[in-house]
Design a protein around this nucleic acid. Structure first.
Lengths: 242, 242
DNA sequence: CGCTAGGATATCGTATACGATTTCGAACAA
DNA sequence: TTGTTCGAAATCGTATACGATATCCTAGCG
């Protein structure tokens, strides 16, 4: 296979973290980053004064940032009580996954005609590396590569709204990396194979419907695997007071 | 047909407007309502002090509300310059419609198994009334009923995220009621017929895929009709200074 | 021992004030 | 006329202050 020469880019799903804007803006990206990184785990209480102190800002921009994150679904907020990092119980997880499978399926189908041979090659390289991760049992890298792989597939989606929804879905799922996520080797194996098949479909210009169906199914199957594995995916919220 | 006895409810797409919360909350719903009503048309400049004055609040909650609306895509915002009601150029419109067709199709398919005979009857009644609106040429009522009809179809969608996305899509489209929207009688005629067919599919428990496909197509066909009709859907933003 | 009342504490919600930035227009030079 | 500079006005961005509300703890009562 043609490997090596294939260029690698950061990938559409990676966060900027560059935040040279207003304090409100920086608070927004800072908090968001913490949530994604997992420093603020689901259920963590976001106390205005505390965060403001940590960032060296006053409460006003922090508050604004939090309400924006609430609108994005990353934070849940209660009047006169405060905000917490949005928790994800099993039901929530299922909903999120289902939504993502629908959106991402569509995004992939819409991107497909715009993916050229070079991109296909890139995706193949990534998928190959994923296979190697399986042999070396490196779930962390596997997950990262999986993200990159799918990123390649839908980053050409011409509809920015859909792209945005996909990104949000991935971010939402990223917040439970540590809690619900379990690595399922058998499923991962299948996953790599399905990726190959999907690339085949795209390469051979299969019709949009087929691609969409396949991509969607790929997602929801992964979901089933994870759900089956997770014995009792923590219902309770953890208190955020360290 | 069994009419009359069928109960009528406000419908899932109608706005609450009840806002007994904090000022930040009330500012949020107030501004949102104005945007949906069309009082604040796309391009309208949302000046903090002015809106604060109108509502009798200070600027802080207003600003917060605006940033939340930005996160929802109803308002576009530029640092140190201000916020305007999000405009929708033809491209944007197309993107929004495409996204909505995908989401709404899925929502309808997911709802279908949960819709009972009573609801079907309700939907039939609404559709019948739509047909009458065509005869009397009442586009306004027709549009309202169309909203109610689709509301019945997907309001049972068990996935709240999807439901939420559908709602947002409708709201986004509502903001251009006055600008891009043109009523296309021929298409409206077809629309009513497709509604009947869709109800048939649901009633006969057609498989999810068929329903989804049909619902999606129904949407995107409407889109095509509107786009074909709109001669030159205003590219320019109107200045907000009255 | 369990429950309720009441106050202390933590935290939120928003008004006000003021510095920072952009925008707009007028005066002036080419 | 056209372009440029400079200053005033408009508007945004955020710190601070303080009232409002919820939560927690303690003491007292049954």
């Amino acid at each position: 296979m043609t490997d090596a020469v294939v260029a690698r880019r950061p990938g559409i799903l990676t966060n900027d973290e560059t935040a040279p804007g207003s304090k409100s803006e920086r608070a927004y990206t800072a908090i968001k980053a913490q949530i994604i990184r997992g420093t603020y785990t689901p259920g963590y209480r976001l106390v205005l004064a505390k965060i403001a102190g940590e960032l060296g800002f006053s409460v006003v921009p922090v508050r604004e940032a939090i309400r924006r994150l609430e609108a994005e679904g990353l934070v849940s907020f209660e009047r006169n009580v405060g905000a917490t990092v949005a928790g994800i119980d099993p039901t929530e997880y299922l909903y999120t996954m289902q939504t993502l499978s629908i959106i991402e399926g569509a995004a992939t189908a819409l991107s497909a005609p715009l993916i050229d041979a070079v991109e296909i090659a890139r995706a193949r390289a990534v998928n190959e590396e994923m296979r190697q991760c399986l042999e070396n049992f490196d779930p962390v890298r596997f997950t990262a590569l999986n993200q990159e792989f799918h990123g390649i597939l839908f980053e050409h989606c011409p509809n920015p709204h859909i792209l945005d929804l996909v990104r949000r879905g991935w971010i939402r799922l990223a917040t439970l990396r540590s809690s619900t996520f379990r690595f399922v080797p058998e499923r991962a194996q299948e996953s790599v194979q399905e990726h190959s098949a999907l690339l085949q479909l795209i390469e051979s210009s299969a019709d949009a419907d087929t691609i969409e169906r396949f991509a969607r199914r790929h997602r929801s199957t992964t979901l089933d695997a994870y759900l089956a594995q997770a014995t009792h995916p923590a219902t309770e919220q953890q208190s955020g007071k360290p």
